[in-house]
C-alpha cells in the first residue's frame, strides 16, 4: 500500500508536468495544425532560466533570499524566458511560412528545435546541472498522507499545475480572448471575419503554451534535480504523446493524457522496471490510437458549417 501510494504520487507529479507541456503542443496544434517540435526546447530553456536565478541568488546551499521568494523568482524567470522564445519561434520560424505547404513549418520546427539545442549546448555546455533541491527545501518537510510523507515540492508541483490548468480552462471558456482562441482554432478565416486579430491570437497561444512549458521546466528541476541541454527531447516526445493520446487540439485531453502518461510511467517503473517505461508509454499511444484514432477526448471532426 505504501509503495503503491508512493508510485501514485510519483505518477501525479510526473503527469502534472507532462500535462503542462502537452497543453502547449495541443494548443499550438489546435490553432496552426502544426506540431511545434521545438516545444521541448522551450521547456528546457525554462529549466535553465530557473537554474540561472537559483545560481545568481546564492544557490541551494546559501540562498540570499527566502526559499519561497527564490522559487517564485525561478518560476517568473522561466515564464519570461520560455514565452519570449515561444513568441520568437512563432514570429521568425512559423509565421513567414504560414501560407506555404503544410510540411514547410514542420521542417522549420525541427530546425528550430536543433537550433535551440545547439544554442543551449554553447551557452550551458554539455554538463548537466543540479538544482540541488533537497538542500533548498529540507527533504523531511512533507505532508503525511496515510503511511507516506509527500515531499513539499511535489505537493507544490501538483497544486500549482492543477491551479494553472483550472485557470487555463476558465480562461479559454469564459473570457473574450479565450473564446477567440477557440474560434480561430476552428475556422481562422471566419474568426477574422468577426474582427478577431488572428495574428494576435496566435501569438497569445504561443505565449501561454510556452509559459506553461517554462513552469514545467522549473518543476522538473525542483523535483528531479538534473537539467541539461537535451532534456527537452524525451520530455517533449512524451508530452506530445500525451497530447495525442488525449486528442490533439483538446485542452482537457492534454491534461488527461499528461496524467495518464505520468501514471503509466510511474507504475511501470515501480512494478516492472524503469527499462520498460518508454516501451509502455509508447505502447499506450499505439493502443489508444488503434481504438480511438482521434485520441480519448478528440471529437469527431465537426464539419465547418
Amino acid at each position: 500500500m505504501e509503495f503503491f501510494l508512493q508510485q501514485t504520487v510519483n505518477g501525479l507529479t510526473l503527469g502534472s508536468v507532462y500535462a503542462l507541456l502537452a497543453l502547449g503542443y495541443s494548443m499550438v496544434y489546435g490553432i496552426l495544425k502544426l506540431l511545434n517540435f521545438a516545444h521541448g526546447e522551450v521547456y528546457m530553456f525554462g529549466a535553465f532560466a530557473g537554474y540561472g536565478v537559483l545560481t545568481v541568488l546564492g544557490g541551494s546551499s546559501a540562498p540570499l533570499v527566502p526559499i519561497w521568494l527564490m522559487i517564485l523568482l525561478m518560476f517568473v524567470a522561466a515564464v519570461v524566458v520560455s514565452s519570449t522564445i515561444g513568441v520568437a519561434l512563432e514570429r521568425f520560424a512559423y509565421r513567414p511560412l504560414r501560407n506555404s505547404t503544410r510540411i514547410a513549418p514542420l521542417i522549420s520546427a525541427v530546425g528550430a528545435s536543433f537550433f535551440l539545442q545547439a544554442a543551449a549546448l554553447l551557452l550551458f555546455t554539455a554538463n548537466s546541472r543540479s538544482y540541488d533541491a533537497p538542500n533548498l527545501i529540507a527533504i523531511q518537510t512533507g505532508i503525511p498522507i496515510g503511511p507516506i510523507r509527500v515531499w513539499m515540492v511535489r505537493v507544490m508541483v501538483i497544486v500549482t499545475s492543477a491551479v494553472l490548468m483550472i485557470l487555463l480552462t476558465l480562461w479559454v471558456n469564459r473570457t473574450r480572448t479565450g473564446k477567440a482562441v477557440r474560434a480561430v482554432s476552428f475556422d481562422r478565416e471566419a474568426a477574422a471575419m468577426m474582427g478577431i486579430d488572428v495574428d494576435k491570437v496566435i501569438v497569445i497561444t504561443f505565449l501561454i503554451g510556452s509559459a506553461l512549458a517554462g513552469v514545467g521546466g522549473v518543476m522538473v528541476g525542483l523535483v528531479f534535480g538534473r537539467v541539461f541541454h537535451l532534456m527537452g527531447f524525451v520530455a517533449g516526445l512524451k508530452a506530445f504523446t500525451a497530447a495525442v493520446v488525449g486528442g490533439i487540439g483538446s485542452i482537457p485531453g492534454a491534461m488527461f493524457g499528461g496524467l495518464l502518461i505520468g501514471f503509466a510511467e510511474a507504475y511501470t517503473t515501480g512494478y516492472i522496471s524503469s527499462t520498460f517505461q518508454n516501451l509502455i508509454v509508447f505502447a499506450l499511444l499505439v493502443v489508444v490510437l488503434l481504438v480511438r484514432p482521434r485520441g480519448l477526448f478528440g471529437r469527431e471532426e465537426l464539419v465547418k458549417v
Binding site: R182, F186, D187, A190, A191, V305
Partner: peptide
C-alpha cells in the same frame, strides 16, 4: 459585418 457563405459558424462553440 458579414454573414459568410455557408454561414461558417463556430461549430464546437
Amino acid at each position: 459585418a458579414i454573414v459568410p457563405e455557408n454561414r461558417r459558424l463556430f461549430a464546437p462553440m
